[in-house]
Design a protein around this nucleic acid. Structure first.
Lengths: 234, 234
DNA sequence: CAACGAAGGATTGCATCCAACCTACGACGC
DNA sequence: GCGTCGTAGGTTGGATGCAATCCTTCGTTG
């Protein structure tokens, strides 16, 4: 454990990404402080940080509220993510993979292939695939050797409730399809087929995004209670 | 004026971008507090925010230091910026310009054309061109109607000393060339030539980036004093 | 002479206290 | 009855004081 401020920041970030605080909800400082067992000071530091990260929006003298994302927002984010992923993959192909990176990606693709070859789909497989998937994209982006790109990609990944959705929209077919994509992308990068690698990576992420947007839209209809019209009822 | 925290954040951000605090330098909280005439509390809030924005890097129990950028970093940032600018322009072309956006861009391109037609280059023209240039990119990115993209683009713009360099690398030829680019990009977007618009915008920003990287590299050689070897001198 | 260690100063981290603001409820006047 | 003003509660903004940590420097020892 480092400082309380960092601990709180991580905890609150995780909680928001996990959906513990509903979109549009206000973050009460004293409530958070008592809940997490610290004073308001580290809480305020954390909120300020998370606001700068884009997870919260801040209004002076009013406080922080959790940003909510519409399916349009998600769609826009994936437009960006797919483009950046394409860029990163292209950069990796241009610069060529290091032996270490090639080794890691080779193992990752192999692990994915084994999961697919297993032919089963359960929570353990889903968890393992999640690991494989994340590793593939992370290693590829690191291979691009562009710190700024890495930074923006990490930012683009931080969307509340997205991780939970992942476990839902994954199924065996999706995994098999994605695994094929990974293998193809890896091949293109290895062969230094720059343009092909970029196009494949972009499309790969875009497809994932489209699936997520679809699911997001479905969950969207459920949460339209709104209405602050308790008076007219009487 | 809103809260002191916001005021301080803006002030310090401006100062950093302006180069008042050298890259790699430590930010002393009490020093900043006395300088700006506030207590450490808003200072700490500001530093935390700026660290999340990426302008400062933070080490627990050690404090904040100003991030320094090498020419490689700048190059990488412009790889990303040009790609995102291409994406934004493509989105604008796909969705089509609103009447308002088309009007604004038309006027901006016209203003730029007049500056070039003037045939002179002085501080006033440079300032006016700076306005035109910024407006063009801002309006175009807004026309893309992708909040997340806008957010990342603004982040990518915040690089210390970059604004000062701009006034140096601008000259009449560069302005004339850029003006042509703007006109062509505007035409492509208006005609809904999606791919052409993307390619032109990407290349346009990339060229600017290449120029900046070149200048950055030149300034880089000057600042290698380092060496904390005062003892051997005796 | 070099290297390790301890003490002091300096700086950051955190909690508490007070001030400013925003909001909501109630009273008063029209 | 309705609108408006005022006040009180609650929440955020900021300052200060103290604890904890780090860095530097000086002293000691091998």
């Amino acid at each position: 454990m480092a400082t309380r401020g960092l601990t709180v920041t991580r905890a609150v970030r995780e909680a928001i990404l996990n959906g513990d605080y509903p979109g549009g909800g206000r973050m009460n400082e004293v409530e958070l402080a008592t809940t997490l067992g610290v004073s308001r000071t580290p809480i305020r530091a954390a909120l300020s940080t998370l606001a700068a990260e884009g997870l919260l929006s801040y209004t002076p003298n009013s406080g922080y509220v959790v940003k909510s994302y519409t399916s349009q927002d998600i769609s826009g984010i994936y437009d960006v993510r797919s483009t950046l992923e394409g860029l990163g993959t292209r950069l990796a192909a241009e610069r060529g993979l290091s032996d270490a990176a090639r080794g890691q990606l080779h193992k990752i693709v192999q692990d994915g292939a084994e999961l697919v070859a297993g032919g089963v789909w359960n929570d353990a497989v889903a968890e393992a695939w999640e690991q494989v998937n994340n590793s593939f994209h992370r290693v590829m982006m690191e291979a691009a050797a562009n710190p700024h790109l890495l930074f923006l990609m990490q930012k683009s990944r931080e969307i509340p409730l997205l991780n939970q959705l992942k476990f839902r929209w994954h199924d065996f077919d999706v995994m098999a399809r994605s695994q094929e994509d990974h293998a193809t992308i890896f091949e293109a990068v290895t062969l230094r087929q720059v343009h092909r690698a970029e196009a494949l990576a972009c499309e790969h992420v875009f497809k994932s995004g489209a699936r997520i947007v679809e699911h997001w839209r479905k969950t969207e209809v459920a949460k339209r209670p709104s209405g602050a019209r308790s008076k007219v009822a009487a």
